[in-house]
Amino acid sequence: MTISSCTKDRVTHGHPCFGGNRHKNGRIHLAVAPRCNIKCGYCDRKHDCANESRPGVTSRLLSPQEALEQVRSTMADEQLGKVIKVIGIAGPGDPLANEETFETFRLVKAEFPELLFCMSTNGLLLPERLKDLAKINLHSLTVTINALDPAVGAQVYRHVIYHGTHYRGEEGAAILIKNQFKGVRLAAEQGLVVKVNTVLTPGINDSQIPLIADKVSEYGAFVMNVMPIIPQAELAHVAPPSPEYLETVRAANEQIISQFRGCQQCRADAVGLIGGGCSL
């Protein structure tokens, strides 16, 4: 199955993270997925956090029913209800590792079928959970891929928990990378519009980015988002790329796959327009 023109048009015109008008189209991130199955060296997840704006943080975790109530109240709001086009689940853990993700989408879909449904994932469980994504009518998917070479991946990922077993180093990175690329290919074949996020970590994965771009393009990804590392946790010592270097990397890969440049590295509970959203 390939991406239908109808689905692709809805996503690219309605989703602000896939090329839609970010000044008119907004999103709700529902923070219903607390658990994660990998540990990225740059990740520092925080709950009950109101003063940071970055992935992995949320003011509070929601149950699926609480998430539905938030969607109801947001869509009923005189201002926000006019701009919200997308329901997304992006953490604070990995959505595919949490059954609350699927229950939330089922609840919201029943009441708001007109909205676009989106998810961000590390991709570890993507190949085996695609059938579940099909049931909830997911429209778009973002997969974060930071390496093609397991030796490089081992510098980014501290561990991988796969089917109950902890893997470290290159062994864990190899499992993750294999599933990520397989998941991208299968998701595109299933008809999802796929975006690939890559965290540019200078001195570690610079050389991997054109390799990732080439492979995900071959596998059917629609767009790539090269984003700067936010130094923290085990990779707090890494200097983030300058805006000029970030743009150089994006431009160098533009001919391989389209590059998204509007990412604000949003919180797991962001609401509203990108760049002007709030947290509820």
Rank of each mutant, 00 (worst) to 15 (best):
E111R: 09
E254P: 02
V108M: 01
I212A: 02
H139Q: 13
G276V: 03
L211P: 00
Q180W: 09
L211I: 13
F105Q: 02
D214M: 11
Y157Q: 00
Y157L: 04
P92M: 05
A174R: 14
N137Y: 12
L61S: 02
I89E: 02
K109N: 12
C43M: 12
G169F: 12
A188N: 14
G172M: 04
N205H: 05
M227K: 03
Q70K: 15
L115I: 11
E218T: 14
M227A: 11
L80K: 12
G275R: 03
R261D: 05
E234L: 14
E69Y: 10
G91P: 08
L30D: 05
I230K: 07
S59H: 10
P64Q: 08
T144N: 08
L68M: 05
F102Q: 00
T2P: 15
G220K: 10
Q255F: 11
C40E: 12
V143L: 09
A251H: 08
K135L: 15
T165G: 01
D77Y: 11
S63N: 07
K82V: 14
A188S: 15
V160N: 00
H237D: 14
I177Y: 13
A270M: 06
G277V: 03
G275L: 07
C17S: 14
P34L: 05
T104P: 01
L30H: 05
Q190G: 13
L125G: 10
T104Q: 03
I274Q: 02
R129S: 08
L116I: 13
K85S: 15
G191V: 09
G19A: 13
G88M: 10
N146I: 07
K109W: 10
H29N: 11
S59Y: 06
I175N: 04
D214N: 11
Q155R: 12
S73R: 12
N21H: 13
L107K: 04
R129V: 09
H23T: 12
F112D: 02
I209F: 05
L200T: 06
E114H: 15
T104C: 01
P92Q: 03
A147F: 07
I136Y: 02
L107M: 11
G91L: 09
L192V: 08
K39L: 15
G262N: 10
M224I: 10
C36N: 03
P243S: 04
P243W: 11
A33S: 14
Q155M: 05
R45G: 00
T248D: 09
G56Q: 07
